[in-house]
Design a binder for these strands. Structure first.
Length: 431
RNA sequence: GCGGCUAUAGUUCAGUGGUCAGAACGCCGGACUGUGGCUCCGGAUGUCGUGGGUUCAAAUCCCACUAGCCGCCCCA
């Protein structure tokens, strides 16, 4: 038997989010839902765990996420009717959404699907500020058959504009948008080849990290922060030079729409994304003051994902926003959630007054008013202090005098004024 | 997964070998027996992260573990 005095703690990389922090989280979630609905997005809820195969095929076998960061277990068969299978806590939600799109044949409607989700994701990384093993994302996906317009650069731009709206709505001001195109299945391999060829000549003069990246993932070399390497990196070929005609046109139309809507962005040809499925447009909104985890949200187009999961052709674009980091950014900018306190504190005074207080509280709550109730054992001073501390503007006293008179004493804590009102007038007095 | 820093009251922290571990804020009680904010008085804060070791003696030194933070990798 374990020592029962030893309290059990939240496991590494997980945490509790408590009030009043939760109200800031709700502020972000409520804002997101509001903004998304303006853009005609609808919520989808997919399972928190899926077949491991989904992420292996969707996110990419070679990615860090799939290679070393997934919570995976073998779910053993316990009955003849069950089969054993490998399951994984979702490390991201796009694969699950596309799986659902395919499974429910949403493309058959011929309509563009505009879906958003809110929920926990799981990655087994080293925890840090703004990086947790259970973290929360808000994301959205636009996908559908090409005939529904899913391939249009207008979709890319609309998603990005929506995010700028969300940032404004929520109150984040110090953001920057980084934009890139990573090309398609035709032109990206050509760029990769060119990059490898160029690196062959200079990589031996670069830092140890770069020498390793040049072999594993040449695109990552572009991310290097070592000052001495910068001139060499600047001389490497850029993806822009290798985009084919269609990709180039697509990218320039995305930019035109952003220009038309007044969204500021930097084209960053060195921006590399960690998930295999991205094609053409990729983007990232970042925020200062987040330290090593500066990315607030990121996304991009994934024209081949549905097919790689065995589905129909269904080009799409989406993003994921890290709520944990988003909230840190909000705090850094001093954004606070609108305060919510009950309207009145009902203070029963003296033995036998609890039922009277409960009766009044119930009547007020039935009419939609939020109220808090003290206890007949409290001295009045304690009731007033409790109301004061909770930010409740009115105290309603119910004692012997009030019951005899058939009225309540109502004190406005802001003005200090106290009046006596009948049961029938109390709602008006408190409103 | 790698490197570094850290862990003492609810919170922010002081305390680097020697009576029973401290401050501020917060909390509780009283002055004020049915009236908050200000003031004054009093009180409790705690297996000093966990487990070992060294020592006559450990919050303090050593080791391991756990957790957090910073950076790397990577990423939301």
């Amino acid at each position: 038997m374990a020592d029962t005095r030893q309290p059990i703690k939240a496991v590494r990389g997980t945490r509790d989010i408590l009030p009043p922090d939760t109200s800031l989280w709700q502020h972000v979630e409520d804002s997101a839902r509001r903004v998304f609905h303006r853009y005609n997005f609808h919520e989808i809820r997919t399972p928190i765990f899926e077949a491991t195969e989904l992420f292996a095929r969707g996110v990419g076998e070679e990615t860090d996420i799939v290679g070393k960061e997934m919570f995976t277990w073998e779910d053993k068969a316990r009955a003849q009717s069950e089969r054993s299978q490998s399951l994984t806590l979702r490390p991201e939600n796009t694969a699950g959404v596309v799986r659902a799109y395919i499974e429910h044949k949403l493309g058959e409607s011929g309509m563009l699907q505009k879906l958003y989700y809110v929920g926990p994701q799981f990655r087994r990384e080293r925890p840090q500020k703004g990086r947790y093993r259970q973290f929360y994302q808000i994301g959205a996906e636009v996908l559908g058959p090409p005939s529904a317009g899913s391939e249009s650069p207008a979709r890319d731009a609309e998603v990005i504009v929506m995010l700028a709206d969300l940032l404004r709505e929520v109150g984040i001001q110090q953001w920057s948008l980084h934009l890139n195109s990573v090309g398609c299945a035709d032109c990206r391999p050509k760029y990769n080849e060119a990059l490898r060829a160029a690196l062959k000549d200079v990589v031996h003069t670069m830092c140890a990290d770069c020498r390793r990246r040049a072999v594993n993932n040449p695109l990552r070399v572009l991310d290097c922060k070592v000052p001495e390497d910068q001139p060499k990196i600047a001389a490497l070929p850029t993806i822009g030079q290798y985009l084919d005609e269609k990709c180039r046109v697509h990218f320039s139309e995305v930019k035109s729409i952003l220009d038309a809507t007044g969204i500021r962005y930097d084209v960053n040809e060195r921006m590399v994304r960690g998930i295999d499925y991205y094609t053409r447009t990729t983007f990232e909104f970042s925020h200062g003051g987040l330290g090593a985890q500066s990315a607030l949200l990121g996304g991009g187009r994934y024209d081949g994902l549905s097919e790689s999961l065995g589905g129909p052709k269904a080009p799409g674009i989406g993003f994921a926003l890290g709520l944990d980091r988003f909230v840190i950014a909000l705090e850094a900018e001093g954004v606070t959630a609108p305060a919510t306190a009950p309207r009145a504190y009902i203070a029963p005074l003296g033995a036998g007054m609890n039922p009277e207080a409960a009766k009044l509280a119930h009547e007020l709550r039935e009419q939609g008013m939020a109220v808090e109730v003290g206890d007949e054992s409290f001295r009045l001073k304690k009731s007033f202090e409790s109301a004061e501390r909770a930010g409740i503007p009115f105290v309603v006293i119910i004692g012997e005098n009030e019951v005899k008179a058939g009225a309540f004493a109502v004190k406005d804590l802001t003005s200090g004024e106290q009046v006596t009102v009948s049961r029938g007038e109390i709602v008006k007095t408190l409103s």
